[in-house]
């Protein structure tokens, strides 16, 4: 196991941020940590990165205790910070990466090639010698990612890697993380963007009020929404009233929302029968997403 967390707890003043949290992450696995603001995600990430001491319990990274063997933990862990800070704005991307690489334990030998390779890998080769303060948010975030993996860690902690990025930049970052997976890297991902989780994670941990509320493979987690697809039908005049559907009427028009437990030809045929004789102007089907399951669980 790459990460083993047992009975981890941590309080700030009277507020319990983590309460008896236990889970394991296997080597090469990508696990997403989900939860609303204040659920304890950042606290857990900070403890695993050795920036914060736990109040109780234990956490081990590649067998090293995060309290007693912090240095050993750091030698096998890369941490990618979200946000605008964490880089030297007046220095170039190359100088930043070189310095952080040396902090991560890399020697001068072969450093230049390694830095160049990492910069190319995150698409910053052409901008390597520009001051970081001239970088876009996406470029900074890619540099953060390069800082995280330059020393070839075995475990990568990704804290909100795509926060504030546009769609293209976010996808580019996800692609880079996906590439990193091929080398067997274990990733613990924290993100509010569920598309990150859907594209990258094998498993989802849901933190609620500092406790692990769910620990499931991605597909099973999505299933917690309780339905497979949402069918929305719009029409005019009299409206049908199928079971388990909600209908919103606005004057002469109506909108029917139906959550179906499976979505296949038989359901489509049944729906056709239900709607026969009614004036339907539009029909749309959206497969259930992680967001639906997360919203249901988080607001439960």
């Amino acid at each position: 196991m790459s990460i083993v967390v047992e009975g981890l707890s941590r309080s700030f003043g009277g507020v319990r941020a983590l309460d008896d949290v236990s889970f394991e992450v296997a080597s090469g696995e990508v696990v997403a940590l989900l939860g609303v603001n204040g659920a304890g995600k950042t606290t857990l990430t900070k403890i695993l990165s050795t920036l914060l001491l736990p109040g109780g319990g234990s956490a081990r990274i590649m067998g090293h205790d995060v309290v007693g063997e912090a240095k050993a933990c750091r030698s096998v862990t890369g941490v990618v910070f979200g946000g605008d800070g964490g880089l030297y704005g007046r220095l170039s991307g190359r100088d930043n990466l070189r310095f952080f690489a040396m902090l991560a334990g890399l020697g001068r030998r072969g450093l230049r090639a390694r830095v160049d390779d990492a910069l190319e890998r995150v698409g910053l080769g052409a901008a390597a010698d520009r001051a970081v303060q001239t970088y876009s948010k996406g470029m900074r975030q890619r540099l953060h990612l390069a800082v995280g993996f330059i020393a070839s860690p075995q475990v990568l902690l990704l804290d909100e890697p795509t926060v504030g990025l546009d769609v293209i930049e976010a996808q580019r970052l996800r692609d880079t993380v996906r590439d990193l997976r091929t080398s067997g890297l274990t990733v613990l991902l924290t993100s509010h963007l569920l598309v990150d989780v859907e594209q990258l994670a094998d498993r989802v941990l849901l933190l609620q009020d500092g406790r692990i509320a769910e620990d499931l493979p991605l597909a099973s987690f999505t299933g917690l929404a309780g339905y497979a697809a949402l069918v929305v039908v719009r029409g005019r005049g009299p409206h049908p009233v199928p079971r388990d559907a909600t209908v919103a009427v606005d004057g002469d028009t109506w909108e029917l929302s139906l959550r179906v437990r499976r979505w296949d030809a038989s359901v489509f045929a049944e729906l056709g029968q239900e709607l026969a004789g009614y004036e339907v102007s539009d029909l749309s089907v959206r497969e259930v997403r992680l967001e639906d399951a997360f919203t249901k669980l988080a607001t439960a």
Partner: peptide
């Protein structure tokens, strides 16, 4: 202030030497 202290502390090198 610039957020670079945390990554410095997370390095394997002794931050006092840094």
């Amino acid at each position: 202030m610039e957020g670079t202290l945390a990554p410095t502390m997370l390095g394997v090198r002794d931050p006092r030497l840094v």
